[in-house]
Design a protein around this nucleic acid. Structure first.
Lengths: 351, 351
DNA sequence: CCATCATGATGATGCGCATTATCGAGCTGG
DNA sequence: CCAGCTCGATAATGCGCATCATCATGATGG
């Protein structure tokens, strides 16, 4: 039953059978052509047939060593890729990356192994950059390690980031246009008559948060809004305290905008507990994706185009990989779809 | 700004600086030791220091070519890996695979590109087995291609399947113990006094379905159940028709068991529409995972240990990869956790 | 004083492939 | 009749590393 574990055939095996040289086989397999390299169709045909009959498959490792391409898109996340939390932040991005890779004929190589005991990851942990097996890599994660990114770029490794990151020098990345989307949320609330808008920003700074802040500030001055005493820094895990919410209400807030959906949900809970009707007496909006499958009213917010961002990142990367010349790093911002939702309504309070 | 793209240092560079041979460097880096190979601690130390100072990192590609392991676990699904459907059937398995790979220090190579125009996949499209880049592979999918599996095994390629598959000859796989779990569901219903249990099996045959059927038959004879006229073959996408359900009720069914949760849900809908109270007048159970986040009563069913199956598959695979001798193919069945739920209650009907 | 052995290392080789430089044969034209 | 050209193909080389067989040296022992 168990045959001698016959080795995978290599190019030299084909060469022997087909009566040509290994070089010729390589040329044929790779479909190479130029004016200095000429293999007539009949020979190509013959080599192909022998290759198929022997069940030949290229060894991607050898090809990679020899400087060839493997049609492999690496995916590296700076945090665990599949948290047990089913409503995975990364999921839409991965969907998009897979779709993009599949459409362009690449496989995905997901790098999981460089995880430290603290759960954080570094590409260079133990000094080994395993990303090299892939032709290029899509990088994601909130806890992006900027040093790693710079080092990668300086090594000439091709990659595309999902999410804007401030690093010295240009890099290729795809982000969502948080600033504009934030502006739309503010516009919506202002259109409903709100003038005192409480703003719950993220406690720990990050580029996406900064973008939202910038969008908010722009909208604020556009509408001549006064947000004195209405800005609060909130930690995602904790959300605002009842006391803080009460203070904002006393300061005259008729609407709340929170960076995080979970914070907005917590806010809804608190307001409910305080007998404040939403959206009757007060409006609530979030500056991110609607939470999945949570019973209750639909949140006023916007949709981050995760899938599109994933696909786009792959496209940008492949573009770099397949072009002969050096491609300038590109930044792309995709727009978010505004969701009117049911947690915002007209301002009934006299101003 | 753009320096000459400095090459990564290699072992020979270290060797030159440290005044030893490349061989020595390799031995030190790999921490190899034996009675024929002896490098004193001082030399090791020195080599390490030079390596560090040069910022040396092994090239995993070259290492792999030279016969070493790649520490790459392939993941191949016979259908699209990330359907937009967020409640992805594969998700728990992927979680487990990632966890297992990470724990054992392997990366995941997800093969996505071999998708045909019909959406089906084959490992050997164009006669090329691209799985070869991975040291071994975890295979999943309902539409498993048996020919591919046999061919893989005969090629000596290492893999572990998630899900039992009937193929000639032994293979390594991890499955859920559907038969026992099914038996527990029946036991539960019988314990509640049900004797006429309608059984909605899957229309298209598969090994997991067959296992459930076997478990059901065993329980049936164990309890001396008569299911004459109570067995129905149901297509998952459609579910049973109202007419069919009515007929089963008329045949005296006081409880329903459906393979698929979605079928059970549809059943609940139909029964509700017919004014049949669940679990008052009739019980309903499913032989699979509870549906996520669906409002309504919790379904009587069992949990498929997807995460554990994924981890276990990786473990079995790695065991094969890292053992010197040939490892016999192993089959592992993990038990499912019974969920009593709220859709089953005592039989109030006279028998 | 030579045979033996342990110690500390190294040279050569090859993994499978891509690429570069080169070569022979046939053909053309002057 | 040979210079020059095109066509078809190849030998040689190297990618970076692991491994095998081997070697030089000094210590030990009989």
């Amino acid at each position: 039953m168990k045959d001698a574990p016959r080795r995978r055939p290599r190019q030299s095996d084909i060469a022997k059978v087909a009566g040509v040289s290994q070089t010729t086989v390589s040329i044929v397999i790779n479909g190479r052509e130029s004016d200095t390299i000429r293999i007539p169709p009949e020979t190509r045909q013959h080599v192909f047939e022998v290759a198929r009959s022997l069940g030949y498959v290229v060894d991607p490792v050898a090809r990679s060593l020899a400087g060839g391409m493997n049609r492999l898109i690496g995916v590296y996340t700076f945090e665990s890729m599949f948290p047990m939390d089913h409503h995975n932040f990364y999921y839409p991005f991965l969907v998009g990356i897979e779709a993009g890779a599949e459409a362009l004929g690449y496989d995905m190589l997901m790098f999981t192994s460089a995880t430290g005991s603290d759960g954080s990851r570094s590409i260079y942990r133990d000094g080994v950059n395993r990303l090299g097996l892939a032709d290029g890599c899509v990088l994601l994660g909130k806890e992006t390690n900027r040093d790693d990114i710079v080092r990668l770029r300086d090594e000439g490794f091709r990659f595309a980031l999902i999410g804007r990151r401030d690093v010295p020098g240009p890099i290729t990345y795809v982000t969502a246009d948080y600033a504009t989307a934030t502006g739309e949320v503010v516009d919506h609330l202002v259109g409903l008559g709100h003038e005192r808008i409480a703003y719950l920003t993220a406690a720990d700074p990050s580029e996406p948060s900064a973008d939202r802040d910038a969008g908010f500030r722009a909208a604020q001055s556009r509408h001549g809004l006064d947000t004195g005493g209405l800005v609060l820094s909130v930690r995602k895990e904790e959300g605002p305290s009842a006391e803080e919410v009460r203070r904002l209400l006393e300061a005259g807030a008729t609407a709340f905008i929170a960076h995080e959906s979970v914070v907005a949900l917590r806010l809804l809970d608190l307001l409910g507990g305080m007998g404040v009707d939403v959206p009757g007496a007060c409006s609530v909006a979030a500056l991110s994706d609607p939470p999945d499958d949570v019973p209750g009213p639909e949140l006023t917010c916007f949709r981050i185009p995760g899938r599109e961002m994933g696909m786009r990142a792959v496209e940008l990367l492949v573009q770099q990989l397949e072009s002969e010349e050096e491609v300038e790093p590109q930044a792309v911002a995709l727009s978010c779809a505004f969701v009117a939702g049911q947690t915002s309504g007209p301002n009934r309070k006299e101003s």
